[in-house]
Design a protein around this nucleic acid. Structure first.
Lengths: 250, 250
DNA sequence: TCGAACATTTCTGTATACAGAAATTGATAA
DNA sequence: TTATCAATTTCTGTATACAGAAATGTTCGA
């Protein structure tokens, strides 16, 4: 939707995949809705073959579901599904943190993580926090988690975490936090940042069990947060995947 | 390879996927080897389109890797990759066991699991254990783990576990345990069955933490087991994915 | 007015054709 | 003999054509 002119640097398949994913996450396609290949062809502007490839990939990714009679539909998730996904992700990240701690990381390896930590600090110290700062936080937070995951040095685990993140971190491209929810969100950010600091410390000190435990706690915070957001119908959480939750969408 | 005549009950894509996966797991395609679409078309007997679909699915599944310049190759795994995958799987199954315990399962829900437990008991009580009994065990064990996973009642978790099982449980269709390795394997089976009994008991008694812990321990047994198998170059382990390990294949 | 059966239309799954890129082979020169 | 360059061949990515199935709309009968 952003650019219409053919971008030759990216394959048609990838383009279709990105376009479809964004369409799903932004709510352009509702949960349960059947996806018409021909319609997608028109919308995206590529042929059926790459669209089809993208559909298969998105199904494997977990955003689509195959219809027995043929074709795909947007997968619908319950509130519990999302909460479970968050806990699942926390468990995997806990394992990653433990791996990082137990296998030993050099000070040099920890550097990017600490740097990221510092950048986040700069944001969350603002009082009151701005909407822009919050958007930056979302990006930085994602980077922090990615860096942490990388530290495990375990390709299978990294892969799995990437997959598990699809839902909890699913976020349409142009998400912005509502102004009214900022103060409460700020409080949560401060706690989350505490967790971040602790896990880095635990890894540095080779305390695997502690590193694992804090990441699980971190996930529990996110879950509590989401539960609150759902109850209040606000977007104060860090996880704007709400469009996918059927029980809310309906 | 089994049937050549067109099986109309299954789609061409699924047929291609199964054929390719079996070809990879049985070692017909070596790790690192590039997969020629046209060659696959000839071997499997379907057109390029379904082959292509199958390749994409197998890549998402983690058995193939995309080549930057185009096409796919069989993914190569290190010994550590496989060990990590086992621990990863154990961690996820631990979470599943905890979910099952905490969320409460009725006696009726536990019935299939207990029945499976009993069947395995019948096998492992044999002394000496037969090669056939061992093959049966492999199947029953997979069923036990699947049933346990189901008890979590968490679709996202079940999905992740299925993905995570791709490697640890990867097994070509006609695998049989070597006669010489049976006694040692039998010992391991007995311990594994102890774990199975404990986890069922823990779930029944709503002891989430205990259920989780024992599944992790269970994975650690499998990992130790595989490590031993790799050192001795025997197939005494329960995880015949060795064909995928490059450090062994080389 | 409602329901069922038939015809029409649309859509998916599969096969194939085509273009551009990559790899391989062969030839020539140092 | 070896290295380099060019020509050829092969392969992938994409588009499109076709057949069968599913869904939809319409018409006829009760």
């Amino acid at each position: 939707m952003a650019e219409r002119e053919t971008d030759r640097s990216v394959s048609q398949t990838v383009r279709a995949q990105l376009a479809l994913r964004d369409l799903i996450l932004s709510g352009g396609l509702r949960p349960g809705e059947r996806i018409s290949e021909l319609q997608a062809v028109e919308t995206i502007g590529v042929s059926r073959t790459p669209v089809r490839m993208a559909l298969v990939r998105l199904e494997e990714e977990g955003l689509l579901e195959a219809i027995p009679s043929g074709g795909f539909m947007v997968k619908a998730f319950s509130e519990r599904d999302i909460l479970d996904s968050i806990e699942l992700r926390g468990t995997l990240e806990g394992l990653a943190a433990r791996f990082a701690a137990e296998r030993g990381v050099s000070a040099r390896d920890l550097e990017p993580l600490k740097e990221c930590l510092g950048e986040i600090d700069g944001l969350v110290r603002q009082d009151p926090i701005s909407v822009e700062a919050f958007s930056s936080y979302v990006a930085l937070n994602a980077r922090f988690h990615a860096l942490l995951t990388e530290l495990s040095r375990s390709p299978p685990l990294i892969r799995q975490i990437d997959r598990a993140s699809a839902l909890p971190f699913a976020s349409p491209s142009g998400f912005v936090m509502a102004q009214s929810a900022l103060p409460e969100a700020h409080q949560i950010l401060l706690i989350a940042q505490d967790h971040h600091r602790i896990v880095v410390d635990a890894i540095e000190n080779r305390e695997g069990a502690r590193a694992e435990a804090i990441m699980r706690e971190h996930a529990r915070l996110a879950a509590r947060n989401l539960r609150l957001a759902l109850r209040n119908r606000t977007h104060l959480d860090l996880l704007p995947a709400l469009a996918l939750i059927r029980s809310v969408a309906d």
